[in-house]
């Protein structure tokens, strides 16, 4: 039973910790891993206009790292 990556923008603080913590993002873009937010939409998720947005959720491997780091339950697997 495959889980799905979900976001709730109402909870999102726009801190970007999920973007930085995500190991798949880091392997796609080193800038993202360094916290410099490259503009590539190749990554799974990015903060856009202060809110988290999913760009390539199909790349998600459901490892749960984003959920572990998110302080407000704005991103999770279900």
């Amino acid at each position: 039973m495959e889980m799905e990556l979900k976001v709730n923008q109402d909870n999102c603080l726009g801190c970007g910790v999920c973007v930085v913590a995500c190991p798949v993002n880091a392997s796609i873009s080193n800038e993202v891993a360094g916290g410099h937010g490259s503009k590539t939409t190749e990554t799974i998720m990015m903060v856009e206009n202060g809110f988290i947005k999913l760009f390539s959720p199909e790349k998600c491997t459901k490892c749960g790292t984003c959920q572990l780091f998110c302080p407000t339950d704005a991103i999770w697997l279900e």
Binding site: M1, T61, T65, L77
Partner: peptide, 19 residues
């Protein structure tokens, strides 16, 4: 079918590891 074990184990989700 093996579930999303990373998320299941790390977030203690109430989902079976296999179905």
């Amino acid at each position: 079918e093996l579930g999303s074990i990373g998320a299941i184990v790390r977030t203690d989700a109430d989902v079976p590891k296999i179905v």
